[in-house]
Simulated assay, not measured.
Amino acid sequence: MLKIIKGGNHGILLPQLGIGLDYRGKQAEYVFVSHGHADHIPWSSNAEAVYATQPTKKFMKLRGAKYEVQELPFKQSIKTENARITFYPAGHILGSAMTFVESDFGNLLYTGDYRTPPSPATEGFELPDAQIDSFITEATFSLPVYRWADYEELKAEITGFAKSALDEGYTPVFLAYNLGKAQEIMHLVKDLNHPVQIHGAGFKLCDVYEEEGIDLGNYETYDRETCEGKILICPSSAINNGFASNVRKKRIAYCSGWAAMESRRSQLTVDKLIPISDHLDFFELISLCEQLQPKMTYITHTPNPDVVKHYLDQRNIPSQFLDMEGEQDD
């Protein structure tokens, strides 16, 4: 049986294999990084080797990781002394990978963060063709209230908000996380052929998307003096710190899975809530577990594991909670 140990507040350790997954501790010889969000990057590492996809490696370097990272392309396996490891596209953000570990102790699929159906600004989503023994899944949106519209509806809602604001003389502002969600929105509004300005921290990450063939349209870094009348994208924190504060006529949309909760409107003082997430929704999670039929499902990154477990119990899918913390990057 494959032993799975929570690696502090972040990451997974497989001690029999010397393998860490998004792991920051000192007990792994090999570490595999699922994607470039801050709560999954080990900021220091004593491992013999750290592996990531090419985009994730670039994001890690841009965000401050100082150690050597080796590239592991999707569906190209490497072998260690005790295991075979393969990355599969996770559909969360560009470069995001699920890690499939095969060993004499059984196999394991670690999702990191993932989205199915995938974000259109990613490499897609693909599962290994194997019966899964241990399945480690995030459950960020672990209540039935979280059900996403399809991407055609979301694109229409996002582009419609931008167009109506511009037509009425307002500057549209989308509140979105700097890595992943911001570029997803840029990709969705590109067909409007209207100039976009993105928060500086997000702007420096956009080159990686362009290098990987993701079209982000006509964009530039945020400039306070010229931002009025452009489509603006920034994280929620920036709007409280002076972003576009000189623009009197603006309309603000909060873009997140958390936008499914109406209370966010008053908390953030926004004009529109758009529930668009780079995580899968509750029903997609349950459906995927039904499809995989893993021998054991480990539920992580959720305030409500009992709800997910209840639904999986009804379907005779064994599960348990693996207590891990994560930032609300959605």
Rank of each mutant, 00 (worst) to 15 (best):
M1A: 14
M1N: 09
G7T: 14
G11R: 01
L13Q: 02
L13F: 04
L13S: 01
L13H: 02
G18F: 04
G20Q: 09
L21P: 07
R24P: 13
A28I: 01
Y30W: 10
A38G: 10
H40Q: 12
S44G: 01
S45H: 04
S45F: 12
A47F: 06
A52E: 07
F59K: 03
F59M: 01
A65E: 11
Q70E: 15
L72M: 15
F74Q: 04
N82T: 15
N82A: 13
N82S: 15
T86S: 02
M98G: 11
T99D: 03
T99N: 04
V101T: 09
V101R: 00
E102M: 04
E102F: 05
S103P: 08
D104M: 12
F105Q: 15
G106S: 12
Y110F: 12
T111G: 00
P118V: 09
E123H: 09
G124P: 11
Q131D: 15
D133R: 03
S134Q: 08
F135P: 10
T137F: 00
A139I: 10
A139F: 07
R147D: 14
W148S: 04
D150N: 15
Y151H: 09
I158Q: 01
I158M: 05
T159A: 12
F161H: 06
F161Y: 12
A162G: 06
E168C: 07
Y170N: 07
I185N: 00
M186G: 01
H187D: 05
D191L: 01
L192K: 10
P195Y: 06
A201D: 15
A201G: 15
G202L: 09
E210G: 06
E211L: 12
L216Y: 13
L216T: 09
G217P: 03
Y219H: 13
E220F: 07
E220L: 03
T221S: 13
E228L: 14
G229E: 10
G229I: 08
I233L: 09
C234K: 03
C234F: 01
P235F: 04
S236H: 02
A238E: 07
I239G: 00
F243M: 06
F243W: 13
A244V: 11
S245C: 13
R248T: 13
R248Q: 14
K250F: 06
R251M: 09
I252T: 14
S263M: 08
S266T: 15
Q267S: 15
L268A: 10
L268F: 06
L268S: 05
V270E: 03
S277K: 01
E284I: 06
L285G: 11
I286H: 03
S287R: 06
K295S: 10
H301K: 10
V307L: 11
K309M: 14
K309N: 09
Y311V: 08
L312T: 10
Q314E: 15
N316K: 10
I317V: 08
D323P: 06
D323L: 11
D323K: 13
M324G: 05
E325P: 00
E325G: 02
G326E: 08
E327H: 07
D329T: 14
D329A: 11
